[in-house]
Design a binder for these strands. Sequence first.
DNA 1: AGGTTGACCTGGACGC
DNA 2: TGCGTCCAGGTCAACC
Length: 270
Amino acid sequence: MPELPEVETIASGVHQRVHGQRIVRVWTSGKPQTFKTPEDEIATALTGARILSVRRVGKTIVMTVARGKTSVELLIHLGMTGRLLVSAPEVPRAVHTHAVLTLDDGREIRFVDPRRFGRLSLQPQNEFYAGPGHEPLTISLDEFVALFHPRHTAIKAALLNQSLLHGIGNIYADESLFRAAIRPTRQAARLTRAELARLRTALVEVLRHAIELGGSSVSDYVDADGARGFFQLEHRVYQRTGQPCLVCGTPIQKITLAGRSTHFCPVCQK
DNA sequence: AGGTTGACCTGGACGC
DNA sequence: TGCGTCCAGGTCAACC
């Protein structure tokens, strides 16, 4: 579901609203697959703890809490449909609410996830390892080229591979390839350095712009306050199948690649 | 080993 | 209105 810009928007929004607060009560839904760490362990570790920070690493939200001398990190992955909301207690709980952290001042952090692809787990502080991938907003061009040059799969599939780059999902893969004028089916290893440079620039621009606009609201994505983002208005190919390309007017095509729907302009993207 | 495919879930859109 | 089918932003296990 949410990709880097959406997770970034949610994590920074939740951080601003709750850091420094103490968790006084923890409720969980009893849906075992949502919890990679047993629910009672999560409840025990968080109850009475103070929230130090909430941040994003890749597509994971990392909440660091401290109780006494020990700190732990609650890892929240939103999957496809997960939401993390900060709500007043009188606001009715949404269906498919799986965890509620009640704060000192009565507000609640709620994890809601209809499709249950999201996951909550606990780690001792600083043991969280996001995997071997790089953050796309800070990777250098040399690193970027070294990452993709050995890959013999389609560039779109490589962009979705979280062990290469963190945080790219279906929307931003399609949108960055369009802006870089590269066809998603091209083999990564056959892209020139100049093409990879265009792709890296396009990715950074798309991700930064999307973060500024609060992410893309396709179906049910909302931020910590329940507000929708606006980057979906900037989509040039994603979910525009059959509509005219905004550059050349050719109808946008949709194919299946790496098991995902993939949108591109057959004229602009070579 | 790298690459590819299907399974995991629920709900909304669409067609008949 | 009601039912069936298809599709969805992610990940991971199991295969080739």
